[in-house]
């Protein structure tokens, strides 16, 4: 289950997240960023590398899942 959220309309398309993604799970087109949930392992490196807090690790979704 994908636990990384992308806050809409906030991304500046700088590419930090793609550069650190070990799974090649992030795609950055001209003005569009996408995470492939089949490849993403929720490692959160993209979250830490994002300079402007576009990506968030969604803890609640994890809690809800485990309930």
């Amino acid at each position: 289950m994908l636990l990384i959220d992308i806050i809409p309309n906030k991304c500046d398309f700088c590419g930090c997240c793609v550069g650190v993604c070990p799974e090649d799970a992030i795609e950055l087109k001209e003005a569009e960023i996408k995470i492939d949930e089949n490849l993403c392992t929720n490692c959160s490196k993209c979250v830490w590398a994002c300079p402007i807090e576009v990506l968030k690790f969604n803890k609640e979704r994890l809690v809800n899942k485990n309930r």
Partner: peptide
């Protein structure tokens, strides 16, 4: 293809870098 390069990976070259080596700039 820049910092967000993926093309090398598709050719089997390890291109992603450790998150500690990414200087995230504003």
């Amino acid at each position: 293809d820049g910092v967000e390069s993926r093309i090398g990976r598709w050719a089997g070259i390890k291109t992603h870098i450790d998150f500690r080596d990414m200087e995230s700039c504003t």
